[in-house]
Amino acid sequence: MMKDRALDPRTKLIIVMSISSLSVFIREPKYLIAILVIALFVSKMMKSEIFMILKKLRRILSLFMAMVLIQSLFIKGGNPIIALGEITLLTDVGILRALEFLIRISIILLSASILMTSSSRELLQGLIEWRIPYEIAFMVSVGIRFLPLLREEIEDTLTAVQLRGIDMEKLTLKEKIHLYSNIFTPVVTGAILKSQSLSIAMESRGFRAYNHRTSYLKLRMKARDYLISSFSILVSILIACLYILR
């Protein structure tokens, strides 16, 4: 059951869509920082568990950092900051791009934290009431539920690898990359095979037997929801205009 004070999941979807589409399309650090602040503010208002997400992602975080680093090293435009003789290592544009990337990732994480204040069932219902075909809406929600499964699969695989007498701590970076690239395919195929059996199981229980499905959970947009939705759309159009006309 929805709590009375909570926003409709559709409102959250609109907010998140506004924030994330702005962050994808804007390439100016100043604006991105402004969006980041807004996203942080909204996420705080919704009492999202952003620290929980960060904690869960802490292993991938180092990967992000590596990506940021690599990105800043490979962009060669602009004025060199660090150079080794003839070879420029780091330029101001490189740093700027890396910064943009970092901010974007943070915005997307914050958006996810906003969405996660609704259960996946509520979000699914939100999509359905937007007349998005049930199959597609269902796919989205299964997709979200699938991520932890994928993580489990990866963890199991890593356990199995280590049990063959491999000390992860002792591997060099090169060996680690070799290892990860090798287990990537089996992990993904494993996940795909699982989803295949899921779909067969669903068909055999009569999924899609009727065109229309009734639902116990009903969502209602309240005045506040309409207000917040229109406000966030208006603000994002405004920001977009400011950015284009700058």
Partner: peptide
């Protein structure tokens, strides 16, 4: 299935030596 982590059968046995 939980502990087989390569795509090819022979690779499963060779993997560790290779690594």
């Amino acid at each position: 299935s939980r502990q087989i982590f390569t795509s090819k059968v022979e690779e499963e046995i060779l993997f560790i030596s290779r690594l």
